[in-house]
């Protein structure tokens, strides 16, 4: 029994079957990659896991509890953090403030009114935030306004914001898209190191096969809303069905 169990999930948008009969089991402390051509339904699947969408059919269990019907903040409090395909950060706030908010959320829960003491007096949290920023090579940008940062930096920041929550399950939607090669490699190293040093399960959507094969313990190939194959990376590489799915896509394009 995996930490994440997706059973018979289906989701339609009007006449479009975005997901059908999706079954997925992610074992604890592994990295599970979901790959597939554009429009395969990968992001839609993640949306069903974090409460952004409610599937029409099927069930999603996390850590033995159903996530369906819970709101996004409740699901996050259960231990799921998510990095979005287009970075979602607090763009009017500084880098450091962006880091403090997830720390408060983890320590104080979904709502706690601290209206009197200064944010700066939270020395312990500030230190934690600084360490995390150092891990993602952003400590020098701590006082910067995030609105003016590059897309790659925004992604790294968003990932740091998720990691600092020490989630049980980390969902990454194309975390290296828009990053320079060097930053991509740094991200791979960071994720590897986090995977080894902490109890964390990772589900990653990625088009960059280098990233996928460096990190994944298992890979699911999704095409037209249904899983084609699921296997260990070595088996996926030369799998005929996978080639077909991707070649099919190229043929369309």
């Amino acid at each position: 029994m995996g930490i994440l169990e997706v059973k018979d999930v289906g989701k339609r948008f009007g006449g479009l079957k975005a997901l059908s009969d999706v079954n997925l089991s992610v074992a604890e402390n592994t990295c599970h990659a979901i790959i597939g051509p554009n429009g395969a339904g990968k992001s839609t699947l993640l949306n069903c896991l974090v409460g952004k969408l409610i599937p029409d059919t099927g069930s999603v269990m996390f850590d033995g509890q159903s996530v369906l019907g819970r709101s996004p903040h409740e699901i996050n409090q259960m231990g799921i953090s998510r990095v979005f395909q287009t970075p979602e950060i607090f763009s009017d706030l500084s880098v450091m403030e962006n880091m403090m908010i997830p720390l408060f959320a983890r320590r104080d829960g979904a709502y706690r009114l601290h209206a009197y003491h200064s944010v700066l007096s939270e020395a312990e949290l500030v230190t934690k935030a600084e360490q995390m920023l150092a891990d993602v090579n952003m400590l020098d940008k701590r006082n910067m306004h995030t609105a003016s940062m590059s897309r790659g930096d925004k992604r790294r920041l968003e990932m740091a914001m998720c990691l600092i929550q020490e989630p049980k399950l980390l969902l990454l939607d194309e975390p290296t898209a828009g990053m320079a090669r060097a930053d991509t490699n740094n991200t791979i190293d960071l994720l590897k190191q986090i995977k080894d040093s902490r109890n964390i399960t990772i589900a990653i959507i990625e088009h960059d096969m280098h990233v996928v094969f460096s990190l994944a313990d298992r890979i699911t190939v999704l095409a037209q809303g249904t899983p084609l194959v699921e296997d260990v990376p070595e088996k996926i590489k030369g799998h005929p069905k996978v080639k077909e799915a991707y070649l099919g896509e190229t043929a369309h394009a």
Partner: peptide
């Protein structure tokens, strides 16, 4: 005091990005 407090920071976060707020485990409503 409110402006400088965690509460004040949360209020600015609400103005900035409620989606991120939700997926960070915070309930903006209260």
């Amino acid at each position: 005091r409110i402006f400088r407090s965690p509460f004040g920071m949360m209020l600015r976060a609400i103005k900035s990005n409620q989606t991120r707020m939700n997926y960070t485990g915070l309930n903006p409503k209260p």
